[in-house]
Design a binder for these strands. Structure first.
Lengths: 154, 154
DNA sequence: ATATTTTTGTTGACGCGTTAACAAAAACGT
DNA sequence: ACGTTTTTGTTAACGCGTCAACAAAAATAT
């Protein structure tokens, strides 16, 4: 994976999960919240997503996903199904409407990605290496801190 | 202002307003939410802060600040006062308890700042210049986008 | 001076996600 | 096979902040 992409990944994370992005996001997808789009995104790219899997992946509680999935169903964007051999777990899949939200989101995502790659090409290889190192070390720093924190809480 | 500090400022903003910081923050100040601490912070460093000023500064609604200030009063961290010549505006100041929260937050803030400056010293002057340029340009990019967005909404 | 407009703060209804408690199903131990 | 434990999803109560509607005070216009 090249440097630009690595830095990009870090930035996308910051961007997607930061307030900045939450408030200045593309007005295209009103009626659907950012969380709902993320949820659709995950359902769209996962094999047999159930409440638990989605909640773990998205960093929300099962209760939260349970409610979000109900909203998405009532909006006609996803539907649920079950394995005949398993009456406990409930899986989700996208409806047509959900699929088009998924596609549109991917499109926006890719557009931002392309813009970013273009932007990043203004830097020399050396500069890119520096920036990458910077982000990698910052990332490690954060991880280290959170580890400390977890340790302290035990 | 030197490069390290400029980059630091940008990072502090990302850090303070990102989910990452919200969830991995120091467990020292439980019973008080991050928003409340920010509010205390602003009240602590402003002359005659009223609901409107605080809301504009913090990017929240007046309704929100109205409720937060009531919470902070009920927790004994701030108190309100009025100008005898103005029966409309309501100002706030920190109580002793509020002041110690303020001080503690500043202490943590400075500690993080110091750690960050130390971390940043691992980079050469050239590298620092590159990183700064990167952040500056990213910042401009974001600003530009938000301007587009505002325009589109009109 | 008085009428109109603007500013300021509050309240109620709402949306969103969390925690806690729970029932049903599955997994496990023996 | 049966009792216990774990997993899974749902629900109610709650916290937080938004929006909309509002009353009171201040600013402005005439």
């Amino acid at each position: 994976m090249n440097q630009a992409l690595k830095i990009l990944d870090i930035f996308i994370k910051i961007q997607e999960y930061s307030d900045v992005f939450q408030h200045k996001r593309d007005g295209l997808l009103d009626e659907i919240s950012l969380t709902e789009v993320h949820c659709i995104d995950y359902i769209g790219m996962t094999d047999h997503p159930n409440v638990t899997k989605i909640s773990e992946q998205m960093g929300l509680t099962r209760a939260g996903i349970s409610k979000i999935s109900k909203r998405l169903i009532s909006k006609g964007l996803i539907e649920s199904y079950q394995d005949p051999d398993n009456k406990k777990e409930i899986y989700f899949r996208l409806t047509e409407g959900g699929q088009s939200v998924y596609d549109e989101h991917k499109k926006i995502h890719n557009k931002v990605r392309q813009e970013w790659l273009a932007f990043f090409e203004h830097y020399s290889d050396n500069e890119k290496a520096t920036i990458l190192r910077f982000f990698t070390e910052i990332n490690d720093l954060f991880d280290g801190k959170s580890a400390d924190k977890i340790e302290k809480e035990k």
